[in-house]
Simulated scan of single mutants.
Amino acid sequence: MINEIKILKKDMALIQAELEANKPYEACGVLIGTINGSTALVEKALPVTNAKRTRRSFELDPKEHYDAWNEAEKDGKEIVGVYHTHPVSSAVPSLWDRETMENAPSVWLIAGADGMRAYVWENGVKAVEITEY
Rank of each mutant, 00 (worst) to 15 (best):
L60E: 00
K74C: 03
V92G: 08
S38V: 10
H86C: 14
Y119V: 11
P47Q: 10
W69L: 09
H84W: 07
S57Q: 06
D75P: 03
G37T: 06
A40Q: 04
A17G: 05
S57H: 07
E4R: 15
H84P: 07
M1H: 08
A118C: 00
E132R: 05
V80H: 09
L95S: 11
G81L: 01
D61Y: 08
D114M: 07
R56T: 08
K52L: 14
N50A: 04
G115C: 03
E122C: 03
T85S: 14
V107N: 12
R53I: 08
C28G: 01
P24L: 09
A51W: 02
R98C: 03
R53F: 14
M1Q: 07
S106V: 05
V128I: 06
H65A: 10
N123F: 11
I7K: 01
E129L: 00
Q16A: 12
A51E: 01
A118P: 13
S94Y: 00
W121F: 14
N103M: 01
T34L: 07
V30F: 13
T131K: 15
K74M: 11
V128T: 02
V48F: 01
D97L: 02
V120Q: 10
I2H: 09
A72L: 11
Y83Q: 01
A68P: 03
C28P: 03
G124A: 09
A118L: 06
G112K: 07
